[in-house]
């Protein structure tokens, strides 16, 4: 069971959090200007990284605040926690086949 370090409440068990999948997907400012392919890409396509994934979590049974996490999706090691809107920290590349 993951131990996630909520930037606002400190380390808490996984069960207190909800998952928000991939981070840093900005909603297009002018959706109408996108063609169907680009809209589908925004809406559905996922990086689904095997390796270090930048993802969003929310402390839903705590402070209810969203934040970003860099997590290895193979080892489940959490490499960084950083607030919404912040740029991801520099992290080692990890590649798995």
């Amino acid at each position: 069971m993951l131990l996630i370090d909520c930037p606002y409440c400190g380390p808490r068990a996984e069960v207190e959090f909800s998952y928000g999948n991939e981070a840093h997907i900005a909603r297009p400012l002018q959706p109408e200007a996108l063609d169907d392919d680009d809209w589908a890409d925004y809406l559905f396509m996922k990086t689904n990284r095997k390796g270090v994934m930048l993802e969003r979590w929310v402390h839903s049974h705590g402070c209810r605040r969203w934040f970003n996490v860099a997590r290895d999706t193979v080892t489940y090691e959490i490499l960084a926690v950083y607030p919404m809107g912040a740029k991801p920290p520099k992290l080692p590349e990890r590649s798995y086949l």
């Binding site: 928000g20 900005a26 969003r56 929310v58 209810r64 605040r65 969203w66 919404m84």
Partner: peptide
């Protein structure tokens, strides 16, 4: 509520 909070905080 979760949906609204998500948009408000993340977007």
């Amino acid at each position: 509520l979760a949906h609204l909070e998500e948009w408000l905080q993340t977007e």
